[in-house]
Structure formats: C-alpha cells, structure tokens
Design a protein around this nucleic acid. Structure first.
Lengths: 194, 194
DNA sequence: TCTTCTGCTTGATCTAAATCAAGCTGATTT
DNA sequence: AAATCAGCTTGATTTAGATCAAGCAGAAGA
C-alpha cells in the first residue's frame, strides 16, 4: 500500500524519493479500511485525517437546510480526501466523507503532517503542487457549472472524468454537476443516440 | 505603499515581520500603476506578475466560444491578482485581468518570488495560508453557484461581499453570480421592497 | 449646452431544466 | 420463489430565469 503512495509521490513531484526520506512518510501514515457506506468524516465533527485513497471510491458532500445533498468532490485511487479547513484549524466540519466502495486508505493526522513537513522537503513540494492543482480544478469546475448547459456539463464529465461516470451512481453524478437525476438520464440518452 | 503590504503580512500570518525580513519583500516587489480599463494580463500571454492591490479594483475573467465573459474573481485593496497556473508554469493564460478603477499595485515576478521563498519563512507561511483560503473560498462559491436560487445568490453576495456590490457594475456582478443583468436588477428591486 | 454613450430598469415572451408522477429492472432479503 | 427495495427511465406539467425588446437617466464627450 505504501508503494502506491511512493509511486504517486515520485510521479507528482517528478522526483525520486530516497529510502531515507520515504521512511518519514511510512512513519506519518497508517493504514485504514473504510467499508462501503461507512464514513471517514461526519458533519459536525473535526476532520482528523488526511487520507490517500490506495483503493476504492469516496464522496465528500454537504446537506443543505432543505435536506438536499451537494457533492463537493469525488475521490478514487490516488486522490486525497479531507476537509482541509477542519483538518488544519480543528473546527467542526460541514462535510461528510463517505465510502462508495470498500476503501483502503493511508491516513495521517495533522500532528504527523506537521512533523513530516519538517522532515521531508518533498512532502512540502507535493503540498504546493497539490494546492495549485486543486485550486485550478475548482476554478475550472466553477466555470463549467456557471456557463455550461446540461448537455455540455455531461460531455465535459465524460471527457474529463470518465472513471467517475462508471463508478458513481447517476444520482450522485447529477448532484455533482448541479442537475437532477432525471435530466442527467435524459441527456445521456440523447447523447447515446448521436 | 509597502507599509500596506507589511501590515497585511502581519495580519494574515498573525506575526510581526522584522525590518530585516521585510527588506526581502521590498527587494522582491516593485510598484506598478494600472489605469482604469487597462490590463495587467491579456488572454494568450504569460502572466508575469503576482500583484498585491494597494489601491483600486480589478476583475479576472475569461471569454468563451460564444463571446460571453465569465468573471472568475474580483479583487480590491489587500487582494492578490494573478493567474497562478500561467505564472508558475509559464504557460499562456486564458484569463484577462483588467482594472475597473485606477490601481496601485505591488508586483513581483516568479523569479523574485522563488528567491523570496528562500529568504523569508514568513512569505512561505503566507503562501500556505493564502492557498488554503482561496481553496476554501472557491469551494464555497461553487456551493453557492450550484445550490442557491438567484435571490439567495444575491443575498449571499450582499452579506459576504458588500464592498463588491458597491464597486463593480451590475453587469459584472451578474456575470460573477452566473445570472443575467436583468435578473440581478429584478432580484435587487424585490429585495429592496422587503 | 446638446448629444451620444453606457449602464440600469421594466415588460413580454420563451425555454431549459425542475418537479411531479408512474413504471421498469435488477439486486437483496426472507 | 416471492417480496421488498434502490436506482434508472420516461412522460406530463410547471417554473425560474433567459432572452428579446424598449425606454430612461446620468456620465462623458463634442
């Protein structure tokens, strides 16, 4: 499991982590399994973990006043799941993080990461790269959400995240795109006929 | 002008920057004025500057295939303007950054910031805090965009960014919220009558 | 001062997507 | 094997907000 993290680290930082440096990662992260329909984080509690998905699929979502779920993000292999705000500032989270499939995770607490940040320059580098990536991704998603029609949204999803289309139920995909399940179903049908 | 940056730095990092350390900032940043309707960045060119707004107001936007403008963000005093992606990876930007009022900026190039990052731990700390803030803000904006009605969006804007409501034209505020100017106008009227 | 813009408002109409409502199919339970 | 259930599809209807179109007021320029 740690080998997956190691390969990921090398890939994302375009470097090769030494055995010595990677030992700090092994000390910081521990293995955790979360079964389907179980939660890594519940709304109202503090997010204790920054989790690397070695295997499985998860979603992060809020529930609004009207009881409607809004999916903030999906995660599959090689993605990170956490509520950064809650995790670093130790405030109660408004998110839920739920396993959609049985998951194998590598998790670290905030204290461990503070230490790791001092021990490993590569960890710091990875952090900067990930922050940037996620910022750019959320800008792009905003753009899609604001300016695309239902059909364009679905096409965007199929082209950019085909893995998601296969692994998450339609109702969740719809919520992620800001559509109703009915609309998503109709749009897909239309697209298949083309 | 540098004093504004200094005060901002102290505030955001909850620290007091020493004279010695702040000298590195003075070396990295230079003053730049951009007049109303002029551009700090044009679509297709590389974003050379990370700019701190000492005075004025700006907007960052894209133009889509249909010629419609989409506002990614607004900036006023104490905000940063840049296309992070273009700035760090030296790739052509898809954004325009335009002054809405005459602006006084403090700008730094990427090379200067790489140096500053080595010289000033406080600069690094600020970077981490800003990344986190902007990530959280864009998550929240996404949530608002996906799940709020036109009226709720306007209320959100009035409560959370009243400064924007006063300084930017309605047409731009509408674009920022993903509404048409007509709808924004109608919603405002309705809200005022309450 | 007059006139041309530019931005905002208001009204009428239209439409994309939501909502409401059934029915279908395959999985899970008993 | 029957029964319950969850997820998806399909159809009918409604609606929020877009689009189209006209008019108005203050700013900017001649």
């Amino acid at each position: 499991m740690y080998e997956l993290l190691r390969a990921y680290l090398n890939k994302i930082t375009s470097s090769t982590v030494s055995d010595e440096e990677f030992q700090f990662f092994e000390a910081a992260y521990s293995e955790k399994k979360v079964k389907k329909k179980q939660f890594l984080l519940h709304e109202g509690s503090i997010c204790r973990y920054m989790a690397f998905i070695a295997k499985g699929a998860m979603r992060q979502y809020t529930i609004d006043d009207k009881g409607v779920e809004h999916i903030a993000r999906f995660g599959i292999e090689e993605w990170w799941m956490s509520d950064r705000e809650s995790f670093t500032s130790l405030t109660p989270s408004r998110y839920n993080i739920e396993a959609i499939e049985d998951c194998d995770l590598l998790v670290a607490t905030n204290e461990k990461l503070i230490l790791l940040r001092e021990q490993s320059p590569l960890f710091v580098k990875m952090g900067v790269i990930l922050d940037e990536k996620s910022y750019i991704a959320s800008q792009k998603r905003l753009d899609v959400t604001i300016s695309y029609t239902a059909e364009e949204k679905v096409i965007y999803m199929m082209e950019n995240h085909p893995q998601f289309m296969q692994r998450f139920p339609q109702s969740m995909l719809a919520s992620y795109l800001g559509l109703t399940p009915e609309t998503l179903s109709r749009v897909r049908k239309q697209l298949l006929q083309k």
